[in-house]
């Protein structure tokens, strides 16, 4: 997956879990941190669930615990079985 494909997928995930905040995520990059997203913990896990569904993978919890930047999340997505239409 290219960076652009991952960013597009992240925007879709964010639109699912934080509808109405599309403008906040318009210029998002992989250098952004999870904290920059300003999501509560439940929404963050929902976003992860959406991404797992889209790439047809289950990310290990202990790897998720290490994620600080969206680039870390991208690495998990790239390391998974990719099944994006």
């Amino acid at each position: 997956m290219t960076d652009d494909e991952i960013i597009a997928l992240l925007k879709k995930a964010l639109a699912e879990v934080a509808p109405g905040r599309t403008a906040d995520f318009d210029k998002i990059t992989l250098e952004a941190t999870i904290d920059d997203l300003d999501l509560d913990s439940i929404s963050t896990m929902e976003m992860v669930g959406y991404l797992e569904e889209q790439v047809d993978a289950l990310f290990p919890d202990e790897e998720l615990a290490k994620v600080k930047k969206l680039a870390d999340l991208a690495a998990l997505m790239r390391g998974s079985r990719v099944n994006v239409a």
Binding site: S41, I42, M45, E46, V48, G49, E52, L58, D61, L64
Partner: peptide, 11 residues
């Protein structure tokens, strides 16, 4: 084993 990924189960 695994943290849920959906709102209802997490709550």
């Amino acid at each position: 084993n695994r943290v849920p990924r959906n709102r209802t189960d997490l709550r």
